[in-house]
Design a protein around this nucleic acid. Structure first.
Lengths: 207, 207
DNA sequence: GTCTATATACCGATAGAC
DNA sequence: GTCTATCGGTATATAGAC
């Protein structure tokens, strides 16, 4: 993996730690991400989060006043993190192909916290009717931003003659769908099976 | 859409109707697929299924003895349907590229029941810990078959010089991940946004 | 700060009325 | 065949002990 994609991941982690300073809150959120992404919003019980973090069930309610609040907080962080990841990749120095390769590597890395967030937010939103309305609202508002960043990069790549000249909106949808599908598959197989490298993923838009 | 991909979809529907003959059972399953895929296994309440089908909550228990049984039945049908779709596509007459294009068109069609099943089975299995053990077992056993069919087609395509010569297992994983990601995105956006055609999806393995 | 105990609500499943 | 009523179990959220 390239130094640039590692840098993207580190940036993501640093953002998370800057936005969540309290130690107990951080623990709860980290373990909640784990359990929410494994069991889904309704399948995840407060007791599961508490047990995973080594606390009692009641303890969680000293820091969050409801399960909805925990989930909404995570969605907020995930939406912001997803946007930032794309943003930082796009504004790095390098050719469009290089920058998109770094972003893809960061997303596909199994150790990536960004990837976990990304999986969670999109996966849960697709099975959306049970999740809190406020979380859905955040996703609706925030989801456009990473698309905007990526589309700018795609147009730049088209003008540079690196990408095929097709509707960049369609290309962006295809890209994020592809990444999401691979992330889910990765979570299922726990990294035992062979996965594509970034250049294979990007072949669908390379000239 | 080509006649061949329509044929694949019709075949899938016919299989479903042949395997589920009782009218009430069929209604329950059809509506259960709808609600399970929207809310997830734990998020879906028996009352939701009943309300969607226009029955009372207790009525469902005349045909299924538990929520687990409904879900497991659906997983069974989905696993079989997914295998059959790939199988029929692979054994059609035509070049490897043509056959894979028909399969992809069938999967990407918004009206496809096969697509709904496929989404459900893979999506739920990824958030797997809450779903019944028997359903997980079926997926584990049945999931290899469509991979087997597809891999044979990929090898054939490589030998014919149509596909790039890479690990066919990796290519199969990439293909199904891609399809799954696009299916989820399609479900989220309810078909308003531009989606890629089959030939764009297949570019990652075309020579 | 952290845990235990409990009130309240909801859901899956059963029994039985019509 | 289809519905209503209800039991039992479990989860969220609160209150209060240490």
């Amino acid at each position: 993996m390239s130094p640039q994609s590692e840098q993207l991941q580190l940036k993501f982690h640093a953002d998370f730690e800057r936005m969540v300073t309290d130690h107990a809150v951080r623990q709860i959120i980290l373990h909640a991400i784990e359990v929410f992404s494994k069991k889904g919003f309704t399948g995840c019980k407060i007791k599961d989060i508490a047990a995973s973090a080594g606390f009692s069930q009641g303890y969680v309610y000293n820091y969050f006043k409801s399960k909805d609040e925990i989930f909404t907080k995570i969605v907020e962080l995930a939406a912001r993190g997803a946007e930032q990841s794309v943003y930082y990749a796009v504004q790095m120095p390098g050719t469009p192909t290089e920058r998109l390769t770094w972003l893809t590597e960061a997303f596909l890395s199994p150790s990536s916290l960004a990837m976990q967030h990304w999986r969670l937010i999109l996966l849960q939103t697709s099975t959306s009717e049970a999740i809190p309305e406020e979380a859905k609202q955040i996703v609706r508002e925030q989801q456009q931003k990473p698309f905007g960043h990526l589309i700018r990069l795609l147009i730049e790549g088209q003008q540079a003659g690196e990408f095929v000249e097709q509707d960049p909106m369609m290309q962006a949808i295809t890209y994020f769908s592809f990444i999401q599908g691979l992330g889910i598959a990765q979570a299922q197989t726990s990294g035992k099976l062979p996965f594509p490298t970034a250049d294979i993923v990007l072949r669908f838009l390379k000239k």
